[in-house]
């Protein structure tokens, strides 16, 4: 679900459409926009404190055969929440391996590449100290 939540706008819907995996469903909870209060810890490890909120869109739906899917995505994107919930529900059906191959795998690869690129840019700014010869001999 983390992959769905972090996917770029429209990505999950596009992958679902490409894979011809769209399905009928009924809403259990229509997409709604709200917030989640995020927390940190004092000194990174101590007692929790409230850091500020983040926008989140969520929904729940049911497939004709009864599988229930939940979508929780960052930001205010009802379509993304719907796609995430649909993919979540389909993961509980015979289509699970198709979802893994055609949705999760490309999302994971894209995210890996993006993170790797950022980490590599950061690595190129790592300081490599060297000591000047002091000439004391």
């Amino acid at each position: 679900m983390g992959l769905f939540a972090r996917a770029p706008q429209g990505k999950v819907a596009a992958l679902l459409a490409n894979a011809n995996l769209a399905s009928e469903f009924e809403w259990l909870r229509k997409p709604e926009i709200g917030s989640v209060m995020l927390r940190g810890r004092a000194g990174a490890v101590g007692a929790p404190f409230n850091l500020g909120e983040m926008t989140v869109t969520r929904c729940s739906l049911r497939l004709p055969n009864g599988e229930v899917g939940h979508g929780y995505v960052q930001g205010r994107d009802k379509d993304a929440a719907q796609s995430a919930a649909l993919a979540d529900a389909l993961l509980q059906t015979d289509a699970a391996s198709d979802i893994s191959q055609q949705i999760l795998l490309p999302l994971r690869t894209a995210e890996f590449e993006k993170k790797k690129n950022r980490a590599e840019k950061a690595a190129s700014t790592k300081v490599e100290f060297f000591t000047m010869a002091r000439g004391e001999d």
Binding site: E32, I33, G34, S35, V36, M37, L38, R39, G40, R41, A44, V45, P48, N50, L51, E53, M54, T55, V56, R58, K115, R118, A119, K121, A122
Partner: peptide
Amino acid sequence: LPRFGYSEPIETSKMACD
């Protein structure tokens, strides 16, 4: 905005550092 809940405290020791 309706508030859906509270997050787990974020783990900055697992940060992907820029």
